[in-house]
């Protein structure tokens, strides 16, 4: 949720179009409420498998604090209100993109992909990648290439991020019957695919310095962080993470045994790296820094 709000805000600010602060705040509120609605619908539908996994069993529906029907009703009502308000307050392109994002997460990912294919989080990742495009569209009424570049960066970030996590939580996914990549294809294949996605993801993170979106600070942060990302992905590829049972030492996401440290390290750094590059873009556009336009020099 915080990542959704943060990346949407970055998209809205990077559009470099003056927007009334009240309307900007309403746009971010609509995106946050839409994300909450998607979450409620997901938790209603997935209550059975959430109850079987350590990471998710404390959620309100499996824990019995909220009735499934109430979560469903809340999800539908919040979806309708957020889309309607986005359309009336900002524009209907942003509203349509928000509606599509909610539909994609709640129906395409949750109902269809999650339980049926190991590519679930690859394709489903589009829902998490769209918020900067919605933010950009809210500010301008358009969705140009640079907005979709931000979307592509998050889209390519999702597989190495989630697969690194699933390498040391695969016992939970197997117990719940969710076909995550380590469960279906095994740990070595997952580590190889993480490396391939990392090799595609890092150059993509440098692209904003070419397309006039990012400045010198962005290029420096993306390049230095990208090098670390690649190093951690390489170390994970060379490790045996995901091959031993009982890799976690507690319910926490970061407490792992020695064999799973490389997976935990990439998972943790992936969050930091994505946050850093979006924060740098946000800072540059707020401060009016000059973009690089590397190719046109």
């Amino acid at each position: 949720m915080s990542l959704v709000v943060f990346t949407a805000l970055t998209g809205l600010v990077c559009a470099d179009t003056p927007i009334n602060p009240v309307l900007g705040a309403v746009a971010i509120l609509c995106i946050a409420v839409g994300a909450g609605a998607s979450g409620a619908l997901n938790m209603w539908y997935d209550a059975d498998i959430d109850a079987k996994m350590r990471r998710t069993r404390g959620r309100p529906v499996p824990a019995g604090r909220v009735q499934g029907a109430d979560a469903l009703a809340l999800g539908i009502v919040l979806s309708l209100f957020s889309v309607m308000l986005m359309g009336m307050a900002l524009n209907w392109l942003a509203a349509a993109l928000l509606a599509f994002t909610i539909f994609f997460y709640a129906v395409i990912y949750t109902v269809w992909l999650k339980r049926s294919t190991a590519q679930n989080i690859v394709i489903g990742g589009l829902a998490g990648a769209l918020p900067p495009v919605i933010g950009w569209a809210a500010a301008t009424g358009t969705a140009p290439l640079n907005a979709w570049l931000l979307c592509a960066i998050i889209f390519m970030w999702t597989p190495p991020h989630f697969w690194a996590l699933s390498l040391y939580t695969s016992e939970d996914y197997a117990k719940a019957g969710v076909p995550m990549m380590p469960v279906v294809r095994g740990a070595p294949s997952t580590r190889r695919q993480i490396l391939v996605y990392a090799l595609l993801f890092v150059p993509l993170c440098l692209a904003p310095a070419v397309t006039g979106l990012g400045g010198a600070a962005y290029f420096g942060v993306a390049a230095a962080g990208g090098a670390v990302f690649l190093l951690l992905a390489w170390r994970l590829f060379r490790s045996h993470a995901g091959e031993a049972q009982g890799q976690r030492t507690s319910d926490g996401l970061y407490d792992v045994r020695a064999g799973a440290r490389d997976a935990r390290n990439l998972f943790a750094f992936s969050i930091l790296y994505l946050s850093l590059i979006f924060a740098t873009l946000l800072g540059e556009h707020l401060l009016g820094a000059q973009p690089l336009h590397l190719l046109s020099r």
Binding site: V22, L23, V26, F81, L85
Partner: peptide, 13 residues
């Protein structure tokens, strides 16, 4: 809160 929000948005727009 929703009614207040719609009112404020209307005034701003």
């Amino acid at each position: 809160l929703f009614v207040i929000l719609v009112f404020v948005v209307t005034i701003v727009r």
